[in-house]
Nucleic acid binder design. Structure first.
Length: 490
RNA sequence: CGGGGUAUAGCGUAGUCCGGUUAGCGCGCCUGCUUUGGGAGCAGGAGGUCGCAGGUUCGAAUCCUGCUACCCCGACCA
């Protein structure tokens, strides 16, 4: 299956595409730009969902569901929001089909034109704020802390599996607060949760920071983000958290009566991560032998493969494996015993290696004699023979070690590919090579756009707690007080 | 939407320039036997509207015209 697999060196984007499809994560569908997420890929997404869902709930959020369709008129209400999304909205204009005149096919029934056209949500701010208006009257109704897991549609020109698809899955949190301070606090709290998730579950180190005005969300006052560096030196925005100020409250007339009996607009946030995280996961860790999954998100953490010649040998092995498997499962480790007789051990080794299973155990007659088992770890590809006795404890520890090792490796990569530059020539050179380039910027959108035009690089983020230092903008030479992070981005 | 490319079995492809048997090969699939500590071997077998629609021709995967889909590179974006 994974024979003739393109290497990262040869062609990074082809490597990515082949990896995603051959590892059974997803495939292209009949509809351009849309993907089928296959069971193995979806299992990873479900693990991501479960972990984040718990984090959201632990911080007081509740799940709800808002509709897929949004009345077109809602989109007129917040000017910059319209501008940001108008170009990529799918629109429903009719609600019925009929047989065509010639009886050969089916056509849109022109008599079934909708009074008001419906937009397939590119995000749900509008429908949610239209709803919140009805829910909020008094400060006693606040805060509202709601999240929804949903699909959204953005009609993109160019798509890539997981990284940018026409329809994608995500979660979107939408909160309403009494004060600006509280909303900002919420925005940053969720940013922290995203960073925590990325680093501790995905083993992907991220930079937390603020988006430049050019890059921020349409309708937000401030957009915060987590940015990760991929192995090809390009940045991937992996999550965003927006402080919306009173923009949507004003657009949808959402007011509350304060303790002082004054009518005030509420303060808002929204935050989201999507199936794009799957792309980040793949591109951050995987190698030329296939996927490498962090143990905390791997659908299968340990696979056990029997090696045998005779049926009775398999029986003995299976008996032994049953005990090992139970011991592992007692320790909350997910185990698959692949005793299929239709594939040979070598084939299975390659298969699970390609699918990124963190630990592989192989057990044969020789092991039964010696009370031993062969353990191979995916991240380092190292193999060793260990006693079966107590193997569950070794594995428990090793899974943690693999998780940590993957993070450390990714962090080291990022550190080795983060550069400070002070001149325009240096900047252009480093940007071409790839990586995060820390440079002074005069703070104007004009300069940012010029830099983008000339180098394709954008400001990925202005890091939180950024050290202040005197410097000159690499492009305009104007004074600057801090370095910002430039990179080419996905 | 611009530039480039591709379309032949489930997947990958040869054949196309220069029209001519039954469209070939690899992987995968099915059956049987032998195998099993890193992608097994042998034997047999199934599987094709050659992207679609026209046209030229005695004859089209091959030449001509039109269309469609997909991929890559740009512009746009998470």
């Amino acid at each position: 299956m994974a024979k003739n697999f393109t290497t990262r060196e040869e062609n990074y984007s082809q490597w990515y595409n082949e990896l995603v499809t051959k590892a059974d994560l997803a495939e292209n569908s009949a509809v351009r730009g849309c993907m089928v997420i296959k069971p193995y890929g979806y299992a990873i997404w479900e693990k991501m969902q479960a972990a984040m869902d718990k984090m959201f709930k632990d911080t007081g959020h509740e799940n709800a569901y808002f509709p897929l369709f949004i009345p077109k008129s809602f989109f007129n209400k917040e000017a910059s929001h319209v501008k940001g999304f108008a170009k990529e909205c799918a629109v429903v204009t009719h609600y019925r089909l009929k047989s065509s005149e010639d009886g050969k096919g089916i056509v849109v029934d022109e008599d079934a034109k909708l009074e008001e056209e419906l937009i397939l949500r590119p995000t749900s701010e509008t429908v949610i704020w239209d709803t919140y208006r009805k829910w909020i009257q008094s400060y006693r109704d606040l805060p509202i802390l709601i999240n929804q897991w949903a699909n959204v549609v953005r009609w993109e020109m160019r798509t890539r599996l997981f990284l940018r698809t026409t329809e994608f899955l995500w979660q979107e949190g939408h909160t309403a607060h009494e004060t600006s301070e509280e909303a900002v606090e919420e925005t940053l709290k969720m940013l922290d949760i995203y960073a925590d998730f990325a680093e501790n579950w995905m083993a992907v180190p991220v930079l937390k920071g603020l988006k430049s005005p050019v890059e921020k969300f349409a309708g937000a006052v401030d957009t915060y983000c987590i940015e990760a560096l991929m192995q090809d030196g390009k940045a991937l925005q992996s999550g965003t958290s927006h402080f919306l100020g009173q923009n949507f409250a004003k657009a949808f007339d959402v007011k509350y009566l304060s303790k002082e009996n004054k009518l005030e607009y509420v303060w808002a946030t929204s935050w989201g991560v999507s199936t794009r995280l799957m792309g980040a996961l793949v591109m951050a860790h995987s190698d030329d032998k296939g996927l490498v999954l962090p143990p905390k998100l791997a659908p299968i953490q340990v696979v056990i493969i029997p090696i045998y010649k005779e049926p009775d040998q398999l029986e003995q092995i299976t008996e032994k494996v049953k005990i090992i498997k139970e011991n592992l499962e007692t320790k909350d480790i997910s185990v698959k015993y692949d005793d299929r007789d239709t594939y040979k051990p070598g084939w299975k080794f390659s298969e699970y290696e390609f699918k990124g299973v963190p630990i592989r155990l192989a057990i044969g007659p020789r092991d039964l004699e010696n009370g031993s088992i062969e353990l191979a770890r995916r991240d380092t590809l190292k193999k060793e023979i260990l006693p079966i006795e107590g193997i569950e404890n070794v594995i428990k520890k090793l899974l943690k070690e693999i998780q940590d090792n993957m993070f450390e490796k990714a962090l080291k990569f990022r550190e080795e590919n983060t550069f400070e530059v002070d001149t325009w020539d240096e900047f252009k050179a480093k940007i071409t090579e790839g990586g995060f380039v820390m440079a002074h910027w005069d703070g104007t959108p004009e300069t940012e756009l010029k830099i983008k035009e000339e180098t394709k690089a954008t400001i990925r983020t202005i890091p939180l707690n950024n050290p202040q230092e005197v410097g000159k903008c690499i492009y305009s030479g104007k004074p600057s007080t801090e370095r910002v992070v430039f990179a080419k981005a996905y």
